[in-house]
Simulated assay, not measured.
Amino acid sequence: MTDEFVPANRANWDARVPDHLVAYGAEAFADDPGANSVRGDLELMAPHLPNGSIEALDLVHLQCHIGTDSLSWARLGARVTGTDFSGEAIAAARRLATRAGLDAQFVQTLNDDAPAVLGREFDVVFTSIGVLTWLSDLNAWARTIHTLLRPGGLFFIREGHPMMSALASERDDDLLVVTEPYFPTGHPQRFDDGVTYASDNLIKEHVTTYQWPHSLSEIFEALLHAGLSILAFDEHTTIPWKALPSLIPTPEGYVLPSGRERLPLMFSIAARKSS
């Protein structure tokens, strides 16, 4: 992330933590040994994992926020390290791990610094949902992933689809109208609305954030240029939060109210570092 934008974005994410702990039901999640938010990810990753299992594998979760996904991997048997640039989020993740009785490590670091800070390699690098828009340089992101992976290691991402992100997000109908950039512009978009996405609450301080659009081609090119081999790519018609006003809840997640085939809401990529 470009240095000049890091303090503003970090302050904003620090400010989100109290609201997100409530909106995520984080304490109830920690108290329930059966609660798990990554079973769908495991299903997509399983064909590329030894024996289809994450058990006993070293996994690093980049941009882990308050760590609920990280703890979900620990509950499935992975040896987990979570990283995030928000000190408040990392502190919350550590408290949740202690409350849940789970052995997971959480480290505050920017993605670009993670290889030096962690000083080790992993079997799996995982990241998901709402992470790429906060990164200005996907080539640096992909190099970090490659460096953190052991030879033969697996990278997996599940993320909001760039085409969905290019749609107008404040409409009172179900029309899909492109108003935002799909392709990278070379500079960030500035937002001052204080929205946290997880609830209707607004942040009252540190409201300014800077985010970058990234196309699918940019994402693929960054991973390939870093030396990763693409194993699988999928596009999905559900999303776990109400990313557009017209989306409706279903047991699978939020979906378009009609014509689900019109638009992918999410995508996933599995990639491997060569042995």
Score class of each variant (00 low, 15 high):
F267A: 03
E261I: 09
L132Y: 08
L42P: 03
G87W: 01
D3A: 14
V178F: 14
T144S: 11
E235R: 06
T144V: 05
V117Y: 03
A97T: 06
F106H: 08
R95L: 02
I145N: 05
G160C: 10
F220R: 05
E180T: 06
P251C: 12
N201H: 13
L176C: 10
Y182H: 01
Y24H: 13
R120P: 02
S268V: 03
L132G: 02
R190M: 15
L223P: 00
A142H: 07
K242V: 06
P257S: 09
A232L: 08
R94P: 00
W134Y: 09
E170Y: 13
H214R: 06
M1Y: 04
L110F: 00
N12Q: 13
D32R: 02
R10A: 05
T238H: 07
V177M: 04
S169H: 15
D31V: 13
I219N: 02
L265F: 00
P249N: 06
D200G: 14
M266A: 13
L176G: 09
M45V: 06
R260T: 15
A226H: 01
G52P: 11
R16Y: 02
G34T: 11
R16V: 07
M266F: 06
G34K: 09
S128M: 01
E252Y: 15
G227I: 02
K204I: 11
D172F: 15
T196V: 12
F267V: 02
H146F: 15
P213F: 04
A35Q: 07
A23Q: 06
R158A: 13
G253F: 09
E55N: 05
L148A: 05
V177F: 07
R272W: 01
R79W: 05
D103P: 04
